[in-house]
């Protein structure tokens, strides 16, 4: 397993948001974390990445328990987090944005360079010197993903990659994710859009009010309308 999460609990202040969440991501697979808004998808990601003020539980990444490490240590071990609100450095150029994400090469995972990323995201190649703030929402979304890949991750957490994007760009995004998977990356993505998730993921985890309600292959979820209608509001 690339990532094995068990008994994960997370709090904001006094409020417990996550209740013993468990999920696995195998090497080279794409897992979708599904749930309606407020279900706790973002909180799960932030807890895995160590960005939530208080968390408990076990997060095994590779062969190591990372649940007590600070964020940057987790990221340096090969876990990338792409937040839902993009958070491009608007005063930096595309090239400089990529530079911020750069980490040393890692054994056994693809090594990304700006050139290789421009191949994966052809739109970006045309605007290397453009300031992040002068890009449209879709281009910014591509850039956040590219920026995370510069860390040569084993696993990428993608929070709602399709949100706020034009349908055509969502399609480009789907192709990019499939291409990343082909490179051998594991991907955990959160989605409300079952159509999109279904196109690209192997397995699904459904979460509601911070509890896991379903975990299994994507095909199984799709064949259980009762499950996804109950928890996903499709």
């Amino acid at each position: 397993m690339t990532l094995r999460v068990s008994n994960l609990c997370g709090w904001y202040g006094q409020a417990q948001i996550l209740f013993e969440v468990a999920l696995d991501v195998g090497p080279g697979s794409v897992v979708a974390l599904l749930g309606r808004n407020g279900a706790g998808k973002t909180t799960t990601f932030r807890s895995i990445a160590g960005l939530v003020p208080r968390r408990e539980g076990v997060v095994v990444f590779g062969d190591q328990d990372v649940s007590r490490l600070p964020t940057y240590e987790i990221v340096r071990r090969g876990l990338a987090f792409v937040p839902e609100d993009r958070r491009i450095f608007t005063d930096l150029t595309v090239e400089e944005n990529l530079e911020v994400g750069r980490q040393p090469p890692r054994l056994g995972v693809p090594h990304w360079t700006p050139e290789r990323l421009y191949e994966l995201f052809p739109n970006l190649a045309a605007m290397r010197r453009r300031l992040g703030g002068r890009m449209s929402g879709g281009e910014q979304q591509m850039l956040t993903i590219a920026r995370s890949l510069m860390g040569n991750p084993r696993l990428v957490l993608l929070d709602e990659p399709s949100e706020g994007l034009a349908p055509k760009i969502v399609e480009d995004m789907a192709h990019a994710i499939v291409a990343m998977k082909r490179e051998g990356l594991s991907i955990l993505l959160s989605e409300q859009n079952l159509h999109f998730a279904r196109l690209i993921s192997d397995a699904a985890v459904v979460i509601e009010s911070g509890h896991v309600r379903f975990a299994g292959p994507m095909a199984e979820l799709v064949s259980h309308p009762d499950v996804y209608e109950a928890y996903l509001a499709v």
Binding site: P83, R147, S148
Partner: peptide, 22 residues
């Protein structure tokens, strides 16, 4: 690289940490 990190952190320090910078 140090300078670029500094400018990035000026804008969004948490995101810089989330990219593996101490």
């Amino acid at each position: 690289r140090f300078g670029i990190l500094v400018r990035a952190a000026t804008q969004d320090r948490d995101m810089v940490a989330a990219l593996g910078v101490n």
